[in-house]
């Protein structure tokens, strides 16, 4: 299969500007268009090793980020387009890359329901797959990025997708979104982290995305069996701990952090029940990232070699 890296710069720019760049992202195909050089360079950095879709494939999501006309360009504004219509207000062009990534998340959050979709990161090492649900600010993405830089395969930073009545996770690897201090934290954590464009003064502060497909199997489509569910919480002044948590409370919390649990009604309840019955649930309270990574390592590898 052809990778984005096989395209020359001019071929990539040609596609982004005209017919669209068709990328295979997990089970979905996006067609991406942009006329913004900043966005183009972000895509070429962060999606370099993504597979291009087969020619003539069915496109799931048409997205674009465009600055149209002289007036919009002079004002430094751009639009995110989905299905060629604009679901949101114009945004400052300097933040366009972050909005492209959010827009691509939004497509999956809102428009697919064949899976139970948890708002969660998912990572795997060997045959051990972990789902990490988290509220914004809980440190889910920071931990996910650090695990990705420590040999874990990132299955998703945002959507853990579970086919109902299985305990499988469908991989949907996309760049990891990092905010504010966590950008520096990850840069200090590893010099191997590769970042895309930095978007400043967004409603979430400073945002940068990290290349997530660092593992040789990052783009394999095969589903992976979830073994553990970890609820990370960054807390500066608390004792760090990895402690078991109740299944019923984990059920409710994971359902609360789901995009479509409620929409799926009985199917959602049964899907969540199957999942929770078959994973072990933990709370992970941390402030030191190295400690947290070791704690997660210990789940996959209960007796580490000295």
């Amino acid at each position: 299969m052809q990778q984005l890296a096989n395209l020359s710069d001019s071929e990539l720019n040609q596609r982004l500007a005209f017919e669209g760049l068709d990328l295979q992202v997990g089970p979905y195909i996006y067609k991406i268009k942009t006329n913004l050089p900043l966005v183009g360079s972000g895509i070429s950095t962060l999606y370099k090793n993504f597979n291009l879709a087969q020619p003539e494939a069915f496109i799931d999501y048409n997205v674009a980020i465009l600055s149209k006309g002289l007036l919009q360009r002079l004002r430094g504004q751009s639009d995110f387009l989905f299905d060629n219509t604009n679901p949101f207000d114009s945004i400052p062009t300097g933040q366009a890359y972050a909005f492209l990534e959010w827009g691509m998340n939004w497509c999956v959050s809102l428009h697919t329901n064949e899976y139970l979709k948890l708002h969660a990161a998912a990572v795997a090492r060997g045959d051990h797959t972990i789902i990490m649900p988290g509220v914004p600010g809980a440190g889910k993405s920071t931990l996910c990025a650090a695990l990705g830089l420590s040999g874990w395969r990132i299955l998703s930073d945002e959507h853990a997708m579970i086919p109902p009545n299985t305990t499988e996770v469908v991989p949907l690897c996309r760049p990891v979104s990092l905010k504010n201090e966590s950008i520096g934290v990850i840069k200090r954590f590893s010099s191997n982290a590769i970042f895309g464009p930095v978007s400043r003064e967004t409603h979430k502060g400073v945002v940068a995305h990290m290349k997530a497909d660092l593992h040789p199997q990052s783009h394999e489509k095969k589903t992976l069996k979830a073994r553990t569910m970890v609820f990370p919480r960054y807390a500066k002044d608390e004792t760090q701990r990895l402690s078991p948590r109740r299944r019923t409370e984990s059920f409710i919390l994971a359902a609360y952090h789901s995009f479509n649990y409620s929409l799926l009604c009985e199917t959602g309840f049964e899907a969540m029940k199957t999942l929770i019955e078959n994973v072990t649930c933990y709370d992970l309270v941390y402030h030191d990232l190295d400690w947290a990574v070791n704690a997660v390592d210990s789940l996959a590898d209960p007796e580490p070699n000295p």
Binding site: R246, T248, E249, F251, C265, E266, F269, I276, E277
Partner: peptide
């Protein structure tokens, strides 16, 4: 409705 009872002090209940 449906229950999810994991032998804990709380039980999940789905009201259809």
């Amino acid at each position: 409705g449906s229950f999810y009872d994991a032998n804990e002090s709380s039980v999940v209940y789905f009201d259809p």
